[in-house]
Structures are given as structure tokens and as C-alpha cells.
């Protein structure tokens, strides 16, 4: 239901954009009130091309999006791996420090 309305909204927005774009591209003079045959043909071609373009963009986008997502996942995995290693190193370090610390402390009273 929500998705349907979203789709409808996208459709209407696309419709407005399509009209606007093809108007800008096909109407270069306003010598008459009616569309002449050239303008009609231009508008028809323009709108069809726009739709094909939309489909093509979507196909290309999906393709690239997929590889982008894969890359991001790989990067996240690498980051998680290195973070894990760092944590492990840190924990061994703190252990090492706590083992070393008593030595100078015990030395202080003696000195």
C-alpha cells in the first residue's frame, strides 16, 4: 500500500519531468499555437527514448550497484578482521604490562 503510493508518486514525477524535458528539447519556436508535425514526431521520439533510457539506466545502475555492494561488504569484512586482530593485540599487551609493572614497584622501596 505504502509502496504502491510511492510508485505512483515516482511515476507522476517522471511524467512531469518527461513532459518538461521533451518540451524544452522539441519546441524551439512559438510561431504557432498548435504542434506541427515535426514537433509531434520529436515529442514522440523524445518520450519513447526517455523511457528506453530510463530502463537502460536502471539496468546499468543495478549492475554497478551489485559490484559496489560486494566491494563494500569485502571492505567491511577486512575492517572487522583488522579490528579483531588489534583487539587481540591490545589484550595481550595489557597482560604484558600488568606482568611487568610489579617489577619497578618492588624496586622502589628497595632503592
Amino acid at each position: 500500500m505504502e509502496a504502491n503510493i510511492r510508485t505512483f508518486k515516482d511515476f507522476l514525477q517522471m511524467y512531469n519531468l518527461l513532459s518538461h524535458t521533451c518540451f524544452k528539447r522539441c519546441i524551439d519556436n512559438l510561431n504557432s499555437r498548435n504542434l506541427d508535425s515535426n514537433e509531434v514526431k520529436c515529442v514522440d521520439d523524445c518520450s519513447e527514448k526517455f523511457i528506453r533510457l530510463n530502463h537502460r539506466f536502471m539496468a546499468i545502475y543495478v549492475e554497478h550497484q551489485q559490484s559496489l555492494v560486494n566491494k563494500r561488504i569485502k571492505e567491511a569484512e577486512m575492517a572487522a578482521e583488522s579490528a579483531k586482530v588489534e583487539v587481540e593485540e591490545n589484550s595481550t599487551n595489557t597482560l604484558g604490562i600488568s606482568e611487568h609493572k610489579p617489577v619497578p614497584e618492588s624496586q622502589v622501596p628497595v632503592g
Partner: peptide
Amino acid sequence: AVCLDRCVAKFLDIHERIGKKL
């Protein structure tokens, strides 16, 4: 004024044409 009149008529014409096509 004449230009605006024609322009609006043409824009609406195109809008309707494309609407039918869609």
C-alpha cells in the same frame, strides 16, 4: 503575451500527449 499563450498551449498539449503514451 502571444508567446506565453502559445507556449502554455503547447506545453499542455505535450503533457497530454505523453500522458496518453504512458
